[in-house]
């Protein structure tokens, strides 16, 4: 038996299996199986993770009907959708434009200075999420201990502290979640664009300089036209990641810095319904399945737009 297994592994045809098996197993357990199980849970009335009681019951499409019904009549779910759309739309613009501006700006200053600041901009992405949330909790705090409030009061722009997460509905809470997530995303664009700029032949810049071009002209006439693919890449990639991530705003809502009603996006809503308070996994799974379908379609379109075939050229000269 042992001999046969060894023989099998020696076979050139199946050698690759040893290499891709670990990844394949993890992908099956943690991506494919969860999708299948989510579909199953979405057809059951599972509540409070009481598997014994609810798992055997199938209620058909009731969770989906509930979801769409709530979408029409329940202000909470409607707000989740409005928040998701506003959040994704505005954060995406901030991410792409902010990343572009930072990459261009850091190009035109000395290299030492720019590398320090580029690293600082990585901090939101790499810092522990709990610490990052704590930072913004105090920054936007609604009382006079909040950094922003005390700064504005010092300048004399406001008389008493503003409760940013509750007062100016819906733009107060939206601004906070957009700002907090926007900073995380900016670094992604900045890094991609910086690398793209560094790959552009510098003779172009020097020729333009000799002709008397300004920084602005060099940016808009040389760099941006040559970075079209990268801008598309950052936009589509960031769109998908904004649709599905919720870690950076989870604590802000949990700690009550922003109102739950206007601080909850679709993916955060799924997590809240499944794991916090009175949980309802059937509904969460239904909302999750719809999100996976939307995301899957968007993901496929993304790869088509970016030229998937180009990204997976065959290995050269394999024996």
């Amino acid at each position: 038996m042992k001999y046969k297994l060894k023989d099998f592994l020696r076979n050139k045809k199946y050698e690759y299996l040893i290499f891709i098996l670990p990844a394949l197993i993890l992908i099956i357990i943690f991506y494919i199986l969860p999708v299948a199980l989510s579909v199953y849970i979405s057809f059951t009335p599972l509540k409070n993770w009481n598997l014994d009681k609810y798992l055997g019951t199938i209620v058909g499409f009731r969770n989906y009907e509930r979801f769409f019904h709530m979408l029409q009549y329940d202000p909470i779910i409607r707000n989740v959708f409005l928040t998701t759309i506003a959040f994704i739309g505005i954060t995406l613009v901030i991410n792409v434009l902010g990343g572009l501006l930072l990459a261009l700006a850091t190009y035109f200053v000395s290299q030492k200075f720019s590398s320090v600041f580029r690293t600082l901009w990585l901090l939101p992405r790499m810092a522990p999420i709990a610490v990052y949330s704590l930072v913004w909790y105090y920054f936007f705090h609604g009382s006079d201990i909040g950094t922003l409030n005390s700064f504005l009061m010092y300048l004399g722009l406001i008389k008493k502290p503003i409760s940013w997460g509750y007062d100016i509905i819906p733009w107060g809470p939206w601004s906070i979640i957009i700002f907090v997530n926007g900073l995380v995303g900016v670094s992604f664009g900045m890094i991609i664009f910086t690398s793209a700029i560094s790959n552009i032949p510098k003779e172009l810049v020097i020729a333009a300089r000799v002709d008397g071009a300004s920084n602005w002209q060099i940016s808009t006439k040389i760099f941006i036209p040559l970075m079209k693919w990268h801008i598309l890449y950052v936009t589509t990639w960031q769109l998908l990641s904004l649709l599905t991530t919720y870690a950076h705003i989870f604590l802000l809502v949990q700690w009550g810095l922003v109102s739950k009603q206007y601080g909850t996006t679709w993916s955060l809503y799924i997590y809240q319904v499944a794991f916090t308070g009175r949980t309802d996994q059937g509904l969460a799974a239904a909302a999750g399945v719809i999100l996976v379908i939307v995301g899957g379609i968007l993901g496929y379109i993304t790869l088509r737009i970016l030229g998937f075939e180009r990204m997976i050229t065959k290995p050269r000269g394999d024996i």
């Binding site: 992908i27 969860p34 299948a36 998908l240 991530t245 794991f275 996994q281 999100l291």
Partner: peptide, 20 residues
């Protein structure tokens, strides 16, 4: 598959992952 999963983060599958 790898690229698609890379583009579409799996954190949203947490309900299924908790079930497992």
């Amino acid at each position: 598959l790898i690229l698609l999963l890379h583009a579409f983060p799996g954190s949203v599958l947490i309900v299924g992952v908790y079930f497992i």
